[in-house]
Each structure stands twice: as structure tokens, then as C-alpha cells.
Simulated assay, not measured.
Amino acid sequence: MKRITLGTTGITVPQNAFGALPVQRVDMEMASLILRRAYEGGMTFFDTARAYSDSEQKIGKALGEVRDKIFLASKTMARTPEAFWCDLEESLRMLQTDYIDIYQFHCVDTCYRPGDGTGMYECMQKAKEQGKILHIGVTSHKLEVARECVKSGLYETMQYPLSYLSIDKELELVDMCKEQKMGFIAMKGLAGGLINNSRAAFAFMSQFDHVLPIWGIQKLEELEEWLGYMEHPPVLDEEITVFIEKEKLELTGDFCRGCGYCLPCPAEIPINNCARMSQMIRRAPSADWLSSQWQDNMKKIENCLNCGECKKRCPYELNTPELLKKNYEDYKKILAGEVDV
């Protein structure tokens, strides 16, 4: 298993890390089992956030005893200094630690800088001086904001969506980070569930020597799949390259990544799944997608107000209302048995 160093942080770990957003969906006992197994299997980097409900608490309980052997990254969505300090103190308490290795501004719409009037970057600096955080990072879903953060030289790590479906402009961001000696933490390596070949996903990441993928894990069988790559990591050979090119052709054009930044919807449409229902049914099949609950959710598209708010908020600049309509039409055909899936 290749080990990578995140930019100038000095943090060196296997190129196979744990994204802890999904563990908020399982109970404490199962979460502890998964997290301990991840550590025992060789994972030493765990990424979470204050926004992920009880994810930090579960990490603290499961891994508190091995704190000195792991690296913890967390995030704050605070937009005021007061909220920043509340978030940080709560994260430290929940994680059962005195410090966080990488503390990140979460999903920013702007590049915080010293003297910009917000006081936000100064909070990071003070927290670092106090030893409560060791390194300053940032996450974003907006490419131009991410580019600005990289160019600023103020951040030690960038967390941004990266997968083999990423477009050229997003891959350029990865190269920018390398040039700036900035660590790159790759989220959404499975494109929000659209990628269902873990070997190809892992092999794609292996070509970068400064990128750390954090795989979102909520089931033991999923975890074992990733841990299996510790001893036998897939490589980006000709077979996988051909497969990836075929996948990119199939998913070329506009598709919803399921990030959820379009929400809330005034018509109560769960847009982040409804706008990609066609792909989810075909690429991540589950009887649940055709349940009465999801039929009701899809029917809500009929009540779309065409307000355009979801389109404005989409970080990928998708025509979300149009995607909703297309997915709803396809969904009705699937229910009627008019198309095969």
C-alpha cells in the first residue's frame, strides 16, 4: 500500500482513508465495530465534521484509546467567530481529544483571509497557536472558490470531490495543489454512489502521489472491500483504464452528484436523489427506489414551483429543474414496465 504525505503537514498515511459521514446512519455499537476494524485493518486517517450529527462522538468512543496512533480531521460550517469557537470546543469534546490534526472550513463560498473583516481566518490562527488544531484546511464544492483558496497559500489542505468522472477543470485543481505543495483530500470518490466499481475507483486515485481518498463507509462488508486493498492495491492498468473510459462515455454530460447543496426545496422535493434517480436505479439498484415512499417523493416533482433556487445553489451549475423532469419521466416508464433496468 502506497503511503502519501499531505502537502507540508507532515501527515503521512496509507492512501486509503476513512470518511465518517455515513457512520452517523448506524447505531453506536455498529459504528464502533466499523471504526475499530478500520483502524485494525490499517486505516489511520479519519475525516468527520461537526455537521455530521453524532459522527464525531462515535469516533471519540471507538478510537479514543488509540488517539496518538491516528490522524483526525474535522470541519466547521461556522460563519462567525462565536460559532467557530463553539464548534471547535464541541468537536474536541466529542472526539475525546485535546487537538485536531486538520481543522477545515466546511463547504465555503468564499476564501477566508486575514484582515477580510470576518475574523474567521484569525480564529484558525489563534486555535493553532493554542495547540487545539495543528493544520488549517478548507473544503468546497465550488471550483472557483477552491481555486482561490489554493492560490491564496493560506491553507495546508484542500478537500474537494474527485473521482474518475471528474472533468478536466477539476483535475487541474489537483495539479494546482501539487504545485502549491498543498495536500488534497478527495471526497466523493464514488461520485455519490454512481460509481460501483471500487477497484477502478481505487486505481484511479493511485496515480496521484499527494491525494488522499476518504471512502464513505457505513457497512462492514464495504469496509472489508477497502481494507482488502491494503495488501493488494489495484493499479491503473490497461484493463481498468479502458473500463473508466467506457464509464465516462456513459455518464458524460450533466448528472447530479447528490451533494444536496440545492436543498431545502420549497416544494419539499428531495432533489439530491430525485434528480439522479435514473442513474441510481441502474447503477446502485435497490428495491427501495421503487417503494411507495420514493414513488411519493418522485411525484412531488409535479409540484415544482420553477423558482430556480436549486439551480442557483448547485455548485456544478446544473439545470436542476430540467434534470428533475427527465428523471421523473424515466421513473414513470420504469414503474409502468415500459423500459428495462
Rank of each mutant, 00 (worst) to 15 (best):
T8P: 01
V26N: 14
D27L: 04
A31E: 04
I34S: 11
G41E: 05
R50C: 04
D54K: 08
D68R: 11
L72H: 08
M77C: 14
T80I: 08
C86H: 14
R93V: 09
M94E: 11
Q96M: 00
Y99T: 10
Y103E: 12
Q104V: 09
Y112D: 03
G115E: 04
D116T: 12
G117S: 11
G119N: 09
A127Q: 06
Q130T: 00
I133G: 12
T139V: 06
H141Y: 15
K142I: 15
L154M: 15
Y155I: 05
T157A: 09
Y160M: 10
L162R: 01
V174W: 00
C177I: 06
C177P: 07
Q180L: 05
I185E: 00
A201N: 01
A203T: 06
Q207L: 00
D209F: 02
V211C: 01
V211E: 03
P234H: 00
E238L: 04
T241Y: 02
K248F: 00
G253H: 01
L263V: 04
A267R: 05
A275P: 09
A275S: 15
R283E: 02
P285E: 06
S291M: 10
S292Q: 11
S292F: 07
Q295D: 08
L305I: 11
L305F: 14
E309K: 09
K311Y: 07
C314A: 13
P321H: 14
K326E: 14
D330I: 02
K332V: 03
K332L: 15
L335K: 07
